[in-house]
Write a protein that binds this DNA or RNA. Structure first.
Lengths: 124, 124
DNA sequence: AGGCCGTCGATAATCTATTATCATATCCCA
DNA sequence: TGGGATATGATAATAGATTATCGACGGCCT
């Protein structure tokens, strides 16, 4: 069965607190503050476990390494800061019902919107 | 200076004919039909050169290896077929002026829309 | 408290994509 | 047409991300 370890707790806590998709390296950094000595292998192991259990959800952004975010959130998109390279959540807004048109014969089943720019922290 | 070789011609021709973003491997396959013996190293070399010269434009899609498309096209987005893993161009349609909202303090400078589904060929 | 077995950290190994190397071939100007 | 600079193809090397290995540690059930 699955055990309750300080490391696993730290990883979950880091992701919950951040409230945004994090890369394994980011999780490692944030997790170290909560569990000294945390190793990258442990981070990868737990990201995998938590994803398989459904608690986490992988987020792929163009040209970026996979991030992970706590699942269960309503449909939303992502924002990538060009300065600090951090990803953020962006609430679905744009009139909810855009119709994405593809050439005839194509069946659109999902879409992904990625915004690029500068985040609040880096703007200052 | 830059020479005119059958290989370089084949690579350009393959990309032009396809009319969609292609991965290096796809360019190699298509290019072999136009220049027998074409090697992957030559493909990478020329994709780089053509990109630096502005003739090609890199296309990054989430979780996918970089594709390349002939540049100079009007603003558009991309469609990725879940069956054959090929990328296609999709004309900008959705009323042109969506406003993408990000949290206050965030500056949105660009956006990317990726559609997922099944292409016309794979639907049949 | 004892002990089993999941977990950890360090690091080696792997994997995929891309670039470098180098001997050979070839384009193109003189 | 001759010859040198550029290009090519096979393959080795590199780079970055992720996974496997393995001895030691430590939750947690009894």
């Amino acid at each position: 069965m699955e055990r309750d370890t300080p490391q696993r707790r730290a990883i979950r806590e880091a992701l919950t607190r951040a409230g945004r998709p994090m890369s394994p390296a980011e999780v490692l950094d944030a997790g170290k503050a909560l569990a000294a000595g945390l190793g990258i292998a442990t981070v990868y192991r737990n990201l995998k476990l938590l994803t398989e259990s459904g608690w986490l959800c992988p987020v792929d952004l163009p040209g970026e390494t996979t991030r992970y975010e706590v699942s269960g959130k309503p449909h939303h998109h992502h924002f990538l800061c060009r300065e600090c390279d951090r990803a953020f959540e962006v609430a679905e807004h744009c009139s909810g019902n855009h119709r994405f048109s593809a050439p005839s014969g194509f069946r659109v089943e999902a879409h992904e919107i990625v915004l690029y720019g500068v985040c609040a922290t880096c703007t200052n």
